[in-house]
Design a protein around this nucleic acid. Structure first.
Lengths: 203, 203
DNA sequence: ACCTATATGTATCACCCGGCACATATTGGG
DNA sequence: CCCAATATGTGCCGGGTGATACATATAGGT
């Protein structure tokens, strides 16, 4: 069951699929799913639209792949910072710092593809909307688990409500996306994040 | 210079302009600026599109009026709660509570028209985008002023950094919009908000 | 009564959207 | 060499977008 090269027949593709996907990710990150037009994608990816459909399926499929790439690269640093086993405060601090750094690294795109990627959402059952909400839910669960573990290790007061704390941090996290889109400076946000953690989890 | 009724000539309009605007506000609140189509607006306002353009100018003008109405009604409760002169903690608590109540009052729309209304933004100089950011900036300024006043009254430690506190609260506030859109329950958010304020401003 | 001014409804504009049909080009397998 | 398979580029589809032209209806001013 190893992945054999499979001896592909037919004309080989003349563009770099990974590079094209990365360019698509940046377009989606900057404009959101609905805001990114096929014309913009065609321009950025430097492929004609039939090649996009042949290689990725549809605009929605392309978006899903772009989100996966985002989680595996830029966007994933938020969650990755959570998995370090040091003091919770350090973990949270580094998570927030990492998030802010990632979201303010370029002029555009800023903020979080996952948080902002489906705004002006379709119907309530919209698959893109549900998909992104699930992504966010994963982060919330990770967060709650991490806080529970900290409580069991005695890093938090035994009466601490890790569920409320998780929502609190989640909310702050979501708010950061809006802040960065608005252009709030990196130092300002870092100071606010430090303050937030210091107060929320007093030693 | 009083506002005379001005003896209008011509056929009088047969619909209630204020009621139509309110319906438009709800459409924008629910779908955002770009997400709200003229077809949806025509259906909700129960006017044909030429009447909309005659009465309001353009889709963008209509949106601006809708935001003004929003600030004067539903959305304004956030800012209004800030102006009470009691203890800061009470003020912040009531502001957050009021915000959450407003944003979760209906099944739809949820969240903040101002925070979410311009997602999948146009070019950087987009007037709609700038307009909404200015609205948010007004809230931030009000918040910083309120915190400074509290410090001067001795309600906060003299070394408190009201600018960082303001950003902190602003961020949390922005995050609430995303949370509510995601369907987080009202009690969960209220608990998180209470915790947030208790910790951020310890007595 | 007639003119002017405003409102309304129909029908439509030019444009852009996501997506695809089709012919052509380029590869490996036999 | 020819066939099957895949990739590419041109051109276009039906549908939805924001916005309007035009004819008609209804009011006040004189």
């Amino acid at each position: 069951m190893t992945k054999t090269p499979a001896a592909r027949r037919g004309r080989p593709r003349t563009f770099d699929r990974d590079a094209a996907l990365r360019r698509a990710m940046n377009v989606f990150w900057q404009h959101g799913f609905d805001g990114a037009s096929m014309t913009q994608l065609v321009d950025a990816m430097q492929i004609n639209s039939p090649s996009i459909y042949a290689a990725f399926g549809s605009k929605e499929d392309l978006f899903r792949e772009a989100v996966e790439l985002y989680v595996a690269s830029d966007g994933g640093s938020t969650m990755r910072a959570l998995t370090n086993d040091g003091d919770v405060r350090d973990a949270l601090r580094s998570m927030l710092a990492e998030t802010i750094l990632t979201f303010t690294r370029h002029d555009e795109p800023r903020g979080c593809l996952i948080v902002l990627g489906a705004r002006h959402l379709g119907p309530v059952g919209d698959p893109v909307r549900a998909f992104l909400r699930d992504q966010r839910e994963r982060i919330r669960i990770l967060l709650a688990e991490r806080l529970l573990k900290a409580k069991q290790k005695g890093e938090l007061a035994p009466e601490a409500d890790e569920k409320a704390l998780a929502t609190c941090v989640m909310t702050f996290l979501n708010g950061i996306s809006i802040e960065t889109v608005d252009g709030t400076s990196q130092p300002t946000l870092l100071a606010a994040a430090e303050l937030f953690v210091d107060r929320l989890l007093p030693r």
